[in-house]
Design a protein around this nucleic acid. Structure first.
Length: 417
RNA sequence: GCGGGUGUAGCUCAACGGUUAGAGCACUGGACUGUGGCUCCAGGUGCUGCGGGUUCGAGUCCCGUCAUCCGCCCCA
């Protein structure tokens, strides 16, 4: 019986994991410069955490959650996103008693039970960032700035920055009412999906791509026109900051986001290079969520980057230093294992990735293996060499070889690096 | 959850419904017992995704199923 990985769950093999490591190292380095520090919440949480934060009527909760009962019958779920867990950790550990702002990042797997396609998997990975305690738009503006820096480091081009404001508890209801009234007598003109959306979550109709719906939506009221004074001030302040950072953005009133907890600012970074899955990073403000979960009323904002999409976009324009071995230590003759271990361990001590034969094979085959590994140097240990304390070295590419003591060989390796 | 494409060796792909299913690359060993690449030889390369059906005969046609890819929904 052949065992395969589950649908939508992929192995990240060494060749690609080097790209992942490169991206992750860049992300950590950059985020820590902005005083974001890593938090590692569990991957499994009480299902209710997600049900309540993301929203019962969202697609994520309705059909995409990995949710099941554990041995004690508790409802648990694999996290479909990171924010809810970080909010939970923030409250549970009373981190609101630490000086504000509290800033976190995480890198790890998320799970959504969806139909896989290009750039979309059931287990996927996000780099997520959350900032608690600051209401000013400078937080989310800096987030876009960080994203821009990050994408620049990874050599990514052709990215679009779009922003919107979803309003707050005060102003969103009047907008929703206006939207409802607008759509209510045009409902026959909407596609079947939108008719369903209209009942469950009318905001969703806004980003429908069906031409007929787009036509209906031509003069649809937009949230921005309904923002209360506070939200308006915040949104304009946000845009002013983006201009300070010289980030080219556009206001897209149809961005609604798939999670219910967003308030005010939302943003998306998209590309045209990934087929239907165009969002590379997205986020926004969620000023009510901490309070909703019983913490002190705390403004917050965050975003997440899709790792797989990032890897897909960047692997071709990054030159990742290969991690293949530089040196192969071969032996010629029997009973030389101790000496090989001594030599190779000296070489590794110097920081060179080194490989050797682990079982008794001919020198010829060792050379063959060394060649296939693409090593630059082969050091040959034999009885003669032990007697003279001089080892044969061979530079594979040039085919040159010579004899030298271990000290001198290490010097050669250093020079050749 | 819905629609479409594709399933043959580890990989890329051939084979009119008709012998024992092939090629290239990769892999392992040898020719070459202390020297890789080139060449040659030998060799695993395989329940043709799985299960039914049609047929004298199915890798090939039909149905189902699973997997995968692409799209829809939605999202990172």
């Amino acid at each position: 019986m052949k065992l395969n990985s589950l649908r939508g769950m992929q192995d990240i093999l060494p060749e690609e994991s080097h790209v992942w490591q490169h991206i992750e190292e860049n992300a950590r380095g950059l985020l820590e410069l902005y005083n974001y520090n890593e938090i590692r919440p569990p991957i499994l949480e009480q299902a209710e955490l997600f049900l309540r934060s993301i929203g019962e009527d969202t697609d994520i909760v309705e059909k995409e959650m990995y949710i099941f009962n554990d041995k004690k019958g508790r409802r648990v779920a694999l996290r479909p996103e990171g924010t809810a867990s970080v909010v939970r950790a923030y409250i549970q550990n009373s981190l609101f008693n630490n000086p504000s702002p509290q800033k976190f990042y995480y890198i790890g797997p998320m799970f959504r039970y969806e139909r896989p396609q290009k750039g979309r998997l059931r287990q996927f990975h996000q780099i997520g960032v959350e900032c608690f305690g600051i209401a000013a738009p400078s937080v989310e503006a800096e987030m876009l700035w960080i994203l821009k820096q990050f994408f620049k480091k990874l050599n990514l081009k052709n990215l679009t920055y779009e922003i919107n404001s979803l309003g707050c508890k005060k102003c969103r209801p009047s907008y929703k009412e206006s939207l409802f009234n607008f759509l209510n007598h045009k409902i026959e003109n909407l596609c079947s999906d939108c008719q369903r959306r209209f009942v469950k979550n009318p905001l969703r109709v806004l980003d429908c791509k069906v031409p007929g719906c787009r036509e209906v939506l031509k003069d649809v009221p937009v949230m921005i026109d309904f923002l209360c004074n506070d939200c308006k001030t915040h949104f304009f302040g946000f845009q002013k900051e983006l201009e300070d950072y010289e980030i080219k953005y556009s206001v897209n009133p149809h961005i609604v986001r798939g999670l219910d907890y967003y308030t005010g600012t939302v943003f998306e970074v998209t590309t045209t290079m990934l087929g239907a899955q165009n969002a590379v990073a997205a986020g926004g403000r969620y000023d009510d969520l901490v309070g909703y979960f019983g913490g002190p009323k705390t403004p917050a904002a965050g975003f997440a980057i899709g790792m797989e999409r990032l890897v897909e976009l960047s692997k071709d324009n990054l030159s990742i230093e290969s991690k293949k071995p530089i040196v192969y230590v071969a032996y010629a003759g029997k009973g030389l294992d101790r000496e090989v271990k001594r030599v190779i361990s000296e070489i590794r001590k110097e920081g060179f990735i080194a490989e050797r034969a682990y079982e008794d094979i001919s020198l010829k085959n060792q050379l063959k293996k060394a060649d296939k590994l693409g090593v630059e140097w082969v050091i040959i240990v034999g009885e003669e060499e032990i007697k003279s304390s001089l080892y044969k070295w061979k530079k594979m590419k040039e085919g040159t070889q010579g004899e030298a003591g271990l000290e001198e060989i290490i010097k050669l390796l250093r020079e050749g690096r």
